[in-house]
Amino acid sequence: MAMLGRLPTKARLTSFGITLDDRCLFGCDVVETRNHVFLGCDFSRSIWNHVLRMCGLHRSGMDWEQELYWLVTRLNGKSLLVIVLKLAWNAFIYMVWRQMNARVFHGVDLTVDQVVVSIKDIVATRLKGKNVNFGDVVNKRLCIEWGLS
């Protein structure tokens, strides 16, 4: 749904006449669109930057369109890094959206670090039991960072 732009962001709900306040839930004074929620907002950008650092990538996340292009053009192959990044991207989308819903419906405000831990747990759970070449320096570091060893 996120990839297709079909999530019920405040901007979409407002266009349907459903909500009055279209501002970002994470405290930004910006209209809540998909592009803003995922990487335009400081909260989500901080989470994604943590994920990139845990993958050993020393770059900052860009806006939604640029980051998606970067992922699609570089995430091919079967290396552990590619697998972790694909899982982490999906977990990132899921956890940011889940946190938005938790704020709206339950009044729960998780920190960036708490969301990162949840993403880490999701990735580690999906990779449990996977055979990993620990002789490879990148794989060894990834296993340590993501709790896979």
Rank of each mutant, 00 (worst) to 15 (best):
A124N: 04
S79T: 15
V132L: 14
L20W: 06
Q66R: 09
K78R: 15
V123T: 01
H50R: 11
F26S: 06
T33C: 03
V82C: 14
L13H: 11
R74Y: 03
T14A: 14
V51Q: 02
L71I: 05
G107Y: 01
F16M: 15
S44F: 08
V123K: 04
L7W: 04
T14K: 15
E65Q: 09
S118R: 14
L39E: 02
R45G: 05
I18H: 06
V132G: 08
L68S: 09
W70I: 02
W89N: 05
D63E: 12
M54V: 00
K86R: 10
Q99I: 00
T111Y: 01
G17M: 03
I119W: 01
N35W: 03
K78M: 11
V30F: 06
R53E: 14
C55A: 15
G61H: 01
K128W: 12
V112Q: 13
N133G: 10
R74G: 15
S118P: 00
N90M: 04
V104W: 00
L7D: 08
V112H: 12
K120Q: 15
V115P: 04
G56S: 12
L127V: 06
M62W: 05
E67G: 12
C55H: 04
R126C: 12
Q66C: 06
H58L: 11
L110Q: 06
I47S: 02
N90L: 00
T19N: 14
V132H: 10
N49H: 02
T33A: 06
R103T: 05
T14G: 14
C55I: 04
K78N: 15
L39N: 03
G107L: 03
L57E: 13
S46V: 00
D109E: 11
G56N: 03
D109A: 12
N76M: 06
F92I: 00
R126D: 13
W70S: 11
Q66Y: 03
L75H: 06
V51N: 05
A102I: 00
V31P: 04
G77Q: 11
Q114M: 11
V37R: 10
P8G: 11
V123D: 06
R12V: 13
F38M: 05
V84Y: 06
L85I: 12
S46F: 05
V96I: 13
V115K: 03
L85N: 05
R6Q: 12
F134P: 07
V51W: 04
F92Y: 09
L127A: 10
D29K: 00
Y69S: 12
C28E: 09
S118Q: 15
G17A: 03
L39Q: 02
N101C: 14
P8Q: 10
D22Y: 10
C55L: 10
F92A: 01
V82M: 04
S79R: 08
E65A: 12
R45V: 01
T125E: 15
P8M: 10
A124Y: 00
M95L: 08
N76D: 11
V108A: 05
H50Q: 14
V104A: 05
Q66N: 12
S118K: 15
H50D: 13
H58M: 07
